[in-house]
């Protein structure tokens, strides 16, 4: 091992150490807990016995848990889909040249500076049925007759409900800026001459988007989707702060369910099992992403 290698290892060591201590070790520990019967109230007296997959079997047999899993997926798909679509559009808008562009850029990027917790608090106030300024505006304008119960209306169409859509909207609002930045960077790396060639070949706005922009953005979009889905599955703050998973479990997501199971009901074993499910879901995304990458590299 020569000097240069030693130096490299020493430089990498702190970051590696932090990752192992704060990331890998808790993950492994949690996975171990998920295979044990770990009830906080009886830990001292009964201990933690190994129960294999029992925890998993129990939570997967629970209707509420399954509903939560489904909702986690729906939330993430909706939030990611809508914000990427809007991001594609808005990125093109800020990429174009026009007066007042910097003002518009600041406005579009401002939600980025609001941490999710603060965003939740702000929107919780903005969407509270009785005091919501949105409700007042809509009522005054005559667009609605009764106040919209953004976070408490429990009517559903299939798996969708108004509280779910409200939280999806807040997630989009909060996450849009970073998506736009990513896409903007991607857009600016597309050579202008490709658009001109497409123009000469007879392409209009839609053709240029479909045949030049989208294919050239593919690598950026893939990374973006992978990151957003992985992050989205584990999203906690907004659902917990704004609705706590209600009403009637309609906005429950895996992270909230896990939190409540572990810290309210003190059943660590089951909470860890839920964590295991999240791990499986994220692994599927990662595998898919890696497969798509290798396909690209091969071709």
């Amino acid at each position: 091992m020569n000097e240069k290698n030693v130096f490299c290892y020493v430089m990498v060591a702190p970051a590696l150490l932090i990752t192992i201590v704060l990331g890998v070790y808790p993950m492994v520990d949690t996975m171990l807990i998920s295979f044990q019967s770990y009830d906080l109230l009886t830990v001292q007296s009964k201990g933690t016995e190994w129960v294999g997959f029992d925890n998993y079997r129990e939570i997967l047999a629970n209707d509420k848990f399954l509903q939560t899993v489904l909702q986690t997926v729906i939330f993430t798909v909706l939030a990611v889909g809508i914000s990427v679509l809007m991001g594609l559009f808005l990125a093109q808008v800020i990429n174009a040249d026009f007066r007042g562009r910097s003002v518009l850029r600041t406005v579009i990027l401002s939600p980025w500076f609001v941490p999710p917790v603060v965003a939740s608090a702000i929107w919780l106030w903005l969407l509270e049925t009785n005091t919501s300024p949105i409700n007042s505006m809509l009522l005054d304008a005559g667009i609605i007759e009764r106040k919209i119960r953004f976070l408490t209306d429990s009517d559903t169409i299939g798996p969708f409900s108004i509280p779910m859509l409200s939280i999806v909207a807040v997630r989009c609002w909060n996450g849009l800026p970073i998506i736009i930045i990513f896409l903007l960077a991607g857009l600016q790396s597309i050579p202008k001459s490709l658009y001109e060639a497409a123009e000469m070949d007879g392409g209009g706005v839609w053709a240029k988007f479909r045949y030049v922009t989208l294919p050239m953005l593919r690598p950026v979009l893939m990374v973006l989707f992978a990151l957003l889905f992985l992050g989205g599955f584990g999203h906690f703050e907004m659902n917990y702060i704004m609705t706590g998973g209600g009403p009637r479990n309609l906005t429950n997501v895996l992270a909230v369910w896990t939190y409540q199971e572990g810290f309210q009901f003190l059943r660590y074993g089951k909470a860890a099992a839920a964590g295991g499910i999240v791990l499986v879901m994220c692994s599927i995304i990662s595998v898919f992403y890696l497969w798509a990458q290798s396909k690209d590299n091969r071709s």
Partner: peptide, 26 residues
């Protein structure tokens, strides 16, 4: 009872909470 805090928690999934919710709201 040590389990009282878990039983009486006012989060969805709490035993008493669910009971109240199902009777009053649902």
């Amino acid at each position: 009872a040590p389990a009282w805090s878990a039983i009486s928690t006012s989060e969805p999934g709490g035993i008493l909470y669910d009971m109240i919710y199902s009777v009053v709201i649902e």
